[in-house]
Amino acid sequence: MAVLVLAGFLVLVAGGCACVVWAARGGPRWVRAVSGVTLAVAQVVSLLGRSGRRSSLGRGGDSDD
């Protein structure tokens, strides 16, 4: 079951990336909408990743204290 969920997630990510490329070349309106959602989600994930790194740096990084 977990493999199916992971495969579905991978298909969504690949489809989103394809829509971003297609929208950059002037695709239809729905492709530009999917592209915008994909880029917004990527921005949110990027911001969450940065805040996670900052909090781990504040705790001393990777040291084994």
Rank of each mutant, 00 (worst) to 15 (best):
A42R: 05
G16E: 04
G26V: 01
S46E: 12
M1E: 10
L12S: 03
R32S: 03
G27I: 07
V11K: 12
V31W: 00
A2P: 00
T38K: 05
D62P: 05
V41R: 01
V34P: 00
A24N: 13
R54S: 10
W30T: 08
F9A: 15
G16I: 13
A42L: 11
S56G: 03
L12C: 08
A24S: 15
V44S: 05
G15Y: 06
G27T: 06
R53A: 13
R25N: 11
P28S: 04
S55E: 10
S63W: 08
A33D: 03
A42C: 09
A14S: 11
A2S: 08
G27M: 07
D62Q: 09
G16F: 08
W22R: 15
G58F: 03
S56W: 13
L47Y: 05
G36I: 04
V41Y: 01
W30Q: 10
S51F: 05
L6P: 01
R50V: 14
R32N: 02
R25Q: 14
L6H: 07
V41L: 10
M1S: 06
L4A: 13
S55F: 11
G8C: 12
A33M: 04
M1W: 05
V44T: 09
G8K: 07
A7Q: 09
V34A: 13
G52E: 07
